[in-house]
Amino acid sequence: MMIETDVKTADLCDDFAEKLQVCYLDFKSYGGRQRFSGPISTVKVFEDNVLVKRALQTIPEGHVLIVDGGGSKRCALLGDRLGEIAEERKLSGIIINGCVRDTAELAELNIGVLALGSNPLKSIKRGEGEENIPVAFGEVKWVPGQYVYADEDGVVVAEARLKKQS
């Protein structure tokens, strides 16, 4: 799957505003790639990243993993090792409603990583949570199989992949 890096969220909003949901969370970019897009895969966890790792090891190439971490900033749900798995498997990106760590290493990876912040503390490892279900945060309903676009201006979600109008 080809990863689109030339699509701007501002252009998509100009052409398709009525077809988009705009995420209203103030994410910080931690990955080496600022622009990324792809079909959505989801996990819902709370301060436990076992399902995050499993998803990164199993979701299809080119997908964007949406991690609903409940907005907790008390620990990191992703660090350099999980980021490397995502890069090796050619995932497009990861968007986390929660925190990351190993930010210097994440910045070196050819993958998009958005999160609320960073925290050096690792998560618990109980394997609790849900996979591949619709999740909601940032005034967006993130539905597996729908399409997400992210860049320096923000994050938008469409029901299907959008073609830029010329």
Rank of each mutant, 00 (worst) to 15 (best):
V100W: 01
A150F: 02
S123W: 03
A115C: 04
A86L: 11
D68I: 05
R54I: 09
N119L: 03
I133G: 01
P134G: 08
A104W: 03
G93F: 12
Q21H: 12
P60Q: 15
G117T: 03
E18D: 15
A115S: 08
S118H: 12
G79P: 13
R161I: 03
D80T: 10
Y149M: 06
E130W: 07
N132A: 10
N119Q: 10
E152P: 00
V67I: 14
E88G: 00
R161T: 06
G32E: 01
N119Y: 06
E105W: 10
F36N: 06
P120H: 08
I40H: 10
A107T: 00
L82A: 02
D48W: 02
Q146L: 01
F16D: 02
G138K: 04
L91M: 15
E159V: 04
V148A: 13
V155C: 06
I111Q: 02
Q34S: 07
P39D: 12
D11S: 08
I95N: 00
G31P: 00
G112V: 11
I66W: 00
G32F: 00
D15G: 03
E4T: 03
E84K: 13
V50C: 06
L25G: 04
G62T: 11
K122D: 14
C13M: 15
G98H: 04
Y24D: 15
Y24C: 12
G117H: 05
L91E: 14
V100F: 02
I66Q: 01
I85V: 15
V64K: 08
D11R: 11
K163T: 15
I3K: 12
D26K: 09
G127A: 00
V113D: 10
V67K: 05
E108T: 15
I3T: 11
E18H: 12
L121A: 09
A76N: 14
G62M: 10
N132Q: 12
A136Q: 11
D48I: 02
L20E: 05
V113G: 02
Q21C: 11
L77M: 07
L20N: 07
G129M: 02
V148N: 07
S118L: 08
K141R: 13
F46K: 13
V7A: 04
N49I: 01
L77S: 06
F46S: 12
E130S: 12
Y30T: 00
L65Q: 10
V143M: 07
L82W: 00
A86S: 09
Y149V: 04
K53F: 05
L20D: 06
Q21M: 15
W142Y: 09
N132E: 06
K164L: 13
S123P: 09
K44S: 15
E139M: 10
C13R: 14
Y149A: 02
N97T: 01
E61H: 09
A107H: 08
D151P: 09
V50S: 05
V143L: 03
M1E: 09
N119E: 06
L56Y: 03
